[in-house]
Design a protein around this nucleic acid. Structure first.
Length: 131
RNA sequence: UAAGCAGACCAAUCUUAUCGUUCUGAACUAGAUUCGGAAAGGAAAGUCUGGACACCAAAGAGUAGUAUAGCGGAUAACACCCGUCCAACGUGAGUUGAGGACCAGUGCAACAGAAAGAAUGUACAGUUAGGCUGUAGUGAAACCAGGUAAACUCUAUACGGUGCAAUGUCAAGUAAACUAGAGUUUGAGAGCUACUCGCUCGAUUCUAAAGGGUAGGCAGAUAGAUUCUAAGAGUAAUUUUAGAACUAGAUAAAUGAUAAGAGUCCGAUGUCAUGUCGGAAACAGGAUCCGGCUUACUGGUCUGCUUUUUUU
RNA sequence: GGGGCAUUAGUUCAGUUGGCUAGAACGUUACGCUGGCAGCGUAAAGGUCAUCGGUUCGAAUCCGAUAUGCUCCA
């Protein structure tokens, strides 16, 4: 397992993102929120992820980029949680809900928790379907 | 020494380790590979301006409209910049200035005042009288062929319009659905423009309502009015010649995280001196590219000058 | 990336070539009519005209800059 985050692993298709927001479901661990959708995509990786920070809460581009970098970093370090658990292709978008900046360490804790909640969520869903 | 004015420049942290991003060169075992190289600013910002570039079927003419406004220079061009005159402010170094024209025309002027435009009054003084002259009083303005043009306007100069979401190209996909109203070879309508003329195309077109498909790739797009150095021209802005350099090209959008050390600044404390402890590091992120303006903003260095006080 | 608009009382808006004290409706507060409520009537409060400059004797109004909000584009 490499701790990489290349173009293939990031969510870059405008079309997929639009579908994701229309059809996807969400899990939330403050200050993060994840929209996810089980669908096919043309990458070799198990999933594609994107991050977003709303312009409403952070007016300056510098602040938004800073938070997105932190979010990408925490995701990159901890994506194995998801990769080990899922067996179908997924796409998801992680949004930042807070109105102030968080430290790297506390943000990482929240990211780990979010990914675990996500894994639990899709496992219970699959279980219910099989029943 | 203190306070201040003007200008120029530097840094916007660095090193090492581990993991990681974008572009790119090479290698081979040919891809979830390995080894290298490059990777944000003085404002990249606001979009206030001037261009380059692209399209609009000659991109034509006129009107309208907009902008600029002492004089001269400089530039690809400009509202910027340089020099200079004048005005206002400041003790001064200096700063600021939309700084043409109310002897072309029209309009406007609250309150006060006799009177605010073709108006001539009151009191006092001068003079023999008529009248004329001066002073007073109101007001921002009545020192008269008055004031006011960031009032219309006039004069001079400049400007065709739209903007890289321009534009070209490849791929995929679809439907000229239907309904209602209006017009049309006696020329409807279209050609992105405020209007007119001219020019070009021209047989089905327009409006309302309601629906279907796409929203991806590549080019444009990074070597240029470029940067640096030297020598000359010019008071200067700027420019000529020679030499050297290559300096981001992303597209849900690339520079980050952790640890250690070093350096800068501030505060406290101590010393003859080196220190010790604690804290801080602003504004802010390319999106076709350049020139300027405006706004935001941390720390420091240097140069020239002014004023006042003290000392030598 | 590039265009176009708006900002006046708590809210929705007027404000006409720059001039007298910036108005209206709704809402708020007080008082009155009622035994009380609703309703009606009377009165009052509430504005740095988004912010900062300039032109002018004088600016909500004219000009410039800034801030905030809305909106359009292939």
């Amino acid at each position: 397992m490499k701790f990489t985050l290349g173009k293939q692993e990031r969510l870059k298709s405008r079309k997929l993102i639009k579908r994701l927001y229309e059809e996807g479901e969400s899990v939330k661990v403050f200050p993060l929120k994840m929209m996810y959708l089980q669908t096919k995509h043309d990458s070799n990786y198990p999933s594609r992820a994107g991050v977003s920070v709303p312009k409403r809460n952070f007016k300056l581009a510098v602040d938004r980029n800073k938070i997105k970098r932190l979010m990408r970093e925490t995701y990159r370090k901890n994506k194995y949680i998801v990769y080990d658990a899922i067996d179908k292709p997924y796409v998801y978008m992680i949004s930042y809900l807070a109105k102030d900046e968080w430290e790297y360490a506390s943000l990482e804790k929240k990211m780990i928790k979010l990914l675990q909640v996500f894994v639990d969520e899709i496992k219970t869903n699959q279980h219910e379907k099989t029943i």
